[in-house]
Write a protein that binds this DNA or RNA. Structure first.
Lengths: 167, 167
DNA sequence: AATAAGTTTCAATTATTTTTGAAAGTTTAA
DNA sequence: TTAAACTTTCAAAAATAATTGAAACTTATT
């Protein structure tokens, strides 16, 4: 397998993985492309490499910047914009965790709290509902807090956590 | 908010969360419904409550059973099948983790290994590719191993992990 | 062994999500 | 201040994913 094939395979794989985790395939592919590029890439180049339209490239780059994992760069003497990805994997994971927590987990927790605190009648059905959703609330809250704690180790948190677990 | 509203809100919310994480909305809704039901539910009832077709119900129940988080039950004297969800949240999380690892992480690791072990020329571009994909391989492998270790604590792993982290 | 009760399958349809492309918008430089 | 270079926006189109429903299949009962 030569470089070109390998790069393509990586981009396709990352795109497919993204899809499976609820991330638009093109967004994941752009991210993959930038991750393995040693220097900033222009929108033109992204369009060319992935064979996508300008609008698609623009919107997905905006999305990646909103996640805080892709940055705009300006090259001296060049009018157009270039893009780079966060390449530090600890940092990447922290940012994705934080963002998913903010966008998805926190709002879900709010609703879990609402539904788990209704006044249940003495029907077994209703008691079970309150009991189960309360447990779910506790579980999700604990998991969310833990993710926060983990990523607070910041530098090499995965490695540090691994150490702690081994003890 | 009364019980019926709360239950509906929970089912909708769980469905929406599923979508965001790459799980078919109906599948997540069926799972939600079963999680908060204190007794086994028939396919008829699922169809009725979620207003979906028989085919849809059948396929998504099969999917949930493949994940190992929903079980078929038989009631004495009844011909038809009933379904229940895994209600223990530790167990639920373990099963989901294991399955996602098997279906998605492991195959990705295989490809990361392939692409990160190509013979790079001395071009900075190619060197960076090999370097970055190698790091990614290491990171994903470590994360996958850790998930495995975590869930090996089995009972109350989330709580136990939390303890360890605090020390 | 025929019928009834129930479940699964899958081609066709419907719904949802993504992508395109061209017009509108913005910024820089002459 | 105008024009060129480049980016963003968004309605329409295309692609993808989910859903339906009826026929085929399976299992239990008489």
């Amino acid at each position: 397998m030569d470089f070109k094939e390998a790069k393509n395979k990586f981009v396709q794989t990352w795109g497919a993985l993204g899809s499976q985790w609820g991330i638009n395939k093109t967004m994941a592919q752009i991210h993959a492309l930038l991750m393995v590029s040693n220097e900033p890439v222009s929108m033109e180049d992204i369009m060319e490499e992935l064979q996508i339209s300008r609008g698609n490239a623009s919107m997905n780059l905006r999305g990646l910047m909103d996640w805080g994992i892709v940055y705009k760069e300006f090259k001296a003497g060049e009018r157009k914009e270039f893009f780079t990805a966060e390449k530090d994997l600890d940092e990447l994971a922290v940012k994705i965790s934080r963002e998913r927590s903010k966008r998805e987990i926190k709002p879900t927790l709010k609703i879990l709290k609402e539904v788990s605190t209704i006044e249940a009648s003495d029907l077994a059905e209703e008691k079970h509902f309150v009991d189960q959703t309360s447990k779910l609330y506790d579980f999700v809250l604990k998991a969310d807090n833990m993710l926060d704690k983990m990523t607070e180790f910041n530098d090499n948190w995965l490695g540090k956590l691994f150490m702690k677990m081994m003890k």
